[in-house]
Write a protein that binds this DNA or RNA. Structure first.
Lengths: 256, 256
DNA sequence: CTCAATTTGTTCTCACATTCACAAACTTCT
DNA sequence: AGAAGTTTGTGAATGTGAGAACAAATTGAG
């Protein structure tokens, strides 16, 4: 079926089937664009259509998709449903991913109620908090479990992905406990750098960092205008501003 | 004081004082590491110390810092307080940044209560929601204002940065209204691609995307082990796993 | 069947980012 | 003062990603 043995395709250069990180980070965006098109009853789309839906340029999109295989048809475009399934399969969304959320403060609550999980194969298997007073409390469909049961929960539910939404001080301990229990991927919302053994993935989501990056560019914009921030700058810094537009770094939430 | 006029430093090659995006994204991490060191009473630190605190390698850290200027001392290291101030100034954290949060659902609540804002010069000037029933409701120190007052709030407070925490459907409209009111930087939590005029920065934080990226790597890990995910893989995929570790993409929250 | 129009998949080139490796600059010890 | 030891700042090499451009493949019209 696939011409995977041939060296003719550039996948021959990637015998490990590895997809570039930058591409992996965009696949979920394409997936969402495809879902949107599908819901509008559109059965087929060109790379140009898809790209504008996803907010990227079409050459990049085509190259990204080419890492997965040749799922388009020249002269026609891509079958929306088919491509959607292929991307979902590549990312691993055709299987169920039970996750556990540790730390049910304000953010933990928001995450627990977030509707975007279930729709993409992620199932919140359990909520855990260290505060005994909170244990038993209901959040959405779930009740908060004791931190002591963390290891049991992870093992019984086959949890591979853990979400840390604790204060910074607790993050490393929670991380260690999650890893000891068998979790191999961690999404960290605590403002702390986590040390993990090789083979464990950590991704960090840090609100304050995103704001600081915006502040940096904002400051440069007003410096360019010098005297009056609200006035048109004397020398329009076109190149400067153009650079900053595409700066986009992932993450979705829905105020469910 | 500074030898900024000389061409001797490589900043002579960057007359626009532009700092690479990748570096800008790491400065907040360094800043946090410096704050942590400072709180532990450490007055001086080498690039090695700092790098391990920040979770990066020391060569990268030195190169990043070199874009700001020569704030270290050879044979000694960096003065923690001094460097901290310099980075804060470069990012623009020495000034006050009033922000407005639009959409006070679960996530909006969490953001409104997030303590990491104030500590870094960000001040939540106002909370806005379109639901009239919510207007007047207290969240933390603030009360929710009407969406109709958005433009007035932005102008009166000199808000340059807006945070969108609405459902996806409302995001583009809110974005347009923010931009029309004068906001030039937007942090978007809604799972939608925003179109903005040139000169406006958008950064996106998308939880579900982060989870999907983790799922992709997780799937690859278990594929490497083939038969028994819980067993040691027959051929240890060392290179594979090593790559994934440093994958980290910013954002901080504290379950205040 | 042939030709024109369309659109993908891929190659090539350039820009950006990371890492190495070392000279320059500073401290400390003798 | 001089030598030995540290540690920064940076040039050079390598790796990764983005975008332009085009050949190959497909459709549809005549």
């Amino acid at each position: 079926m696939t011409s995977r043995n041939r060296r003719s395709t550039h996948r021959g250069d990637r015998p490990d089937r590895g997809i570039p990180e930058a591409t992996v980070a965009r696949l979920p965006v394409y997936l969402r664009a495809l879902t949107a098109l599908s819901e509008r009853g559109i059965a087929s789309a060109s790379s140009e259509d898809l790209a504008s839906s996803a907010g990227v340029n079409s050459a990049k999109l085509r190259k990204d998709l080419s890492y997965l295989g040749s799922y388009g048809t020249r002269g026609v475009g891509y079958d929306v449903e088919y491509l959607r399934y292929q991307i979902a399969r590549e990312i691993g969304l055709t299987q169920d991913w039970p996750v556990v959320i540790v730390g049910i403060g304000n953010l933990g609550h928001a995450l627990a109620n977030y509707s975007g999980f279930a729709s993409r194969g992620f199932r919140v298997a359990s909520l855990v908090d260290i505060d005994p007073a909170r244990v038993g409390e209901c959040v959405g469909q779930l009740t908060i479990a004791s931190y002591d049961d963390l290891a049991t929960i992870v093992r019984d539910n086959g949890v591979a992905i853990g979400v840390i939404a604790t204060p910074a001080g607790a993050a490393q301990t929670v991380c260690d406990d999650l890893v000891a229990a068998g979790v191999t991927s961690i999404l960290n919302f605590a403002p702390a750098v986590l040390a993990v053994p090789a083979g464990v993935d950590v991704r960090k989501v840090d609100l304050s960092i995103e704001l600081q990056i915006l502040a940096y560019h904002e400051q440069r914009k007003s410096q360019a205008g010098q005297n009056h921030p609200l006035t048109e700058p004397l020398t329009p810094p076109l190149t400067d501003l153009a650079v900053t537009d595409a700066a986009t770094v992932a993450v979705e939430v829905e105020s469910a």
